[in-house]
Nucleic acid binder design. Structure first.
Lengths: 188, 188, 188, 188
DNA sequence: TATGAATGAGTGTTCATTCAT
DNA sequence: AATGAATGAACACTCATTCAT
């Protein structure tokens, strides 16, 4: 594992344990087992380091996601929307803390806006998908970032519940969770 | 206006402008127009100060909320749930930034858990209301913090949209927003 | 003696001993006997501190100098020019290191230009005096900063000679030194 | 061009642009296009590097100067002195920044003493020349470093004037400049 | 109640120097 | 000859907190 990666991992761990304000180059270096100044061998400054952690995390989600399928017009809109939610769900469960991490880093900059997963992909496939859903009369005529933050909130809370042992993994199926989301956003 | 209040206001303003990491006694004191050390006359330390801002904010929401009505069994469950959401909605629009503020402070401590408005009231009236809804078969059989975070996310995002001029105030009515929420949580 | 002054004195001493690159807040604070962070109670940053030392030094020269007499048209130009040189000379001998200090600080910023004593006084009395001398045909028709740097160089070198014991104080009188300067600049 | 030379050139350029405090092995290496650590292949440490730049610069002046002529007793003293000044003048105009460079490096070490061009040549030809001038009653009976610093100051200021566009090159001839110097130092 | 002076621990960042390859 | 990785010491600067007045 490269040292870049180790450093990024340390940052992620610290953010999840102590919040984004707890990140210091000293702490990061100590956790990795290198000299503090070494952090600057791999990242130009602290902000670049934190940004890179954010980028890495979004990139992971995007690369796990079948973006092409989401844009495939041969699949029906409801099916594609379900695919999108399912992918976020799967990723979130497989990588607990990932969504929390993204939210924390965003909040560090004072951006209180709820995070919208998928909004960072290069062609904004998710945005186009949801917009298409609204246009086609499949989804409620509301700003799509409402949908995105809803999806994020529900999945994030569920994942955290599972991670914290509040909810047993089998207690809430994806179908149950998706009915919550789908009932919310679909045009009745 | 007492100096305690002025200090808390300064903290809230700073958090909203620069994020929670931007709060320092120096900056707060400068904004209030007092000596830096005076902050410690009113608050034991910085953490107590920030906590007090959080307490004050939740207290405001609760005191604005007709908690007794929410617990009034003479009113139907769906009606009470709608009241709850409406109250959060009204408060959020009347005090833009309030929800953001709460989220920011929570994230400062590394508590990535989505915020659940109403969970802090003394008798957990909201929790009891939603639990009753689940038990009565009115709401989907899911953990109620899923509902809470959904409500928070939707209202918060909408409020932020309005504040940022992304959404015109009349463009999205409360009814439209509530249909999103109610469709989500109600048992079909 | 105020702490501001003590700090400035420490800076001056360090510059004279180790050159301007040797100035660090740590060293300054240690020399004054205060905590390093205290330097920032009295000066906004290191640059402001060093600038203040420079200002103080020029101010001292100016306040020692009878500027009004230099601008007094009832006195002949040669006499006034001699007064100007004498004043710089007197000051320089009374405050050995002062000119060195000014030169060092200027060179810190990469301004290789020879220092021109008196150029910092509010109304540029010296500049006007020398310009008048040129116009009146008393001085050679050359850029006046040549004259200024000549005066500075000669006096500075002489003072340093005295300070270092290279030249005995009586060995070179002011008259001898001034003949060097006056012969140089006067129109034959 | 050898890499030693390239490194020295980089150092000189940095000193002239940012002052002596701006020199760092990182910056030097970047400018040359080599790895930072390579600097230590050619120079034992930073001080040795800077010293070498100083040495090289003085060596250049000396080698440009017809030292033998300056010591040639068949030429009259005034003529030889004029030759000396002319040579410094020519060199300084041909290599603008050279004198500045020397002054900067000297000041780096806290040696506030005005620089005396020619004092570094192996046999101190210039010193002997000026001393001879004093002994012979050609020059004023003053310490010869006064003369040297005067020559340096005048030429340096003039060169800088020209480089900065303050003085047009033709506006001040060498003769005009030399009259300033010669009038100063010659015994009336 | 209010202040200003003080401090020590901390921050991010740069640097000269070393060394294995 | 050349590199890149590594490091410890230094730097300017900020901060939360204390205390005498």
């Amino acid at each position: 594992m490269s040292k870049q990666t180790k450093i990024q991992d340390a940052v992620a761990a610290i953010i999840l344990k102590e919040g984004p304000a707890g990140v210091s180059t000293t702490k990061v270096a100590r956790q990795v087992g290198i000299a503090q100044s070494n952090v600057y061998l791999y990242f130009q400054n602290k902000q670049a380091l934190i940004d890179s952690v954010y980028q890495r995390e979004t990139q992971r989600i995007i690369s796990t996601t079948a973006l092409t399928a989401l844009a495939d017009s041969r699949i029906s809109l409801p099916e594609r929307i379900r695919m999108y939610v399912q992918q976020v769900y799967d990723y979130s469960l497989a990588h607990p803390g990932s969504l929390t991490l993204l939210q924390q880093i965003k909040s560090l900059k004072g951006q209180g806006m709820a995070l919208t997963v998928g909004a960072d992909d290069p062609n904004n496939v998710v945005g186009q998908l949801l917009t298409a859903g609204v246009t086609a009369g499949v989804l409620k005529p509301l700003p799509i970032n409402l949908f995105m933050s809803l999806v994020f909130a529900v999945i994030h809370t569920h994942t955290t519940n599972v991670k914290n042992g509040v909810t047993a993994p089998e207690a809430v199926t994806f179908d149950a969770l998706y009915s919550l989301i789908w009932d919310a956003i679909r045009l009745a």
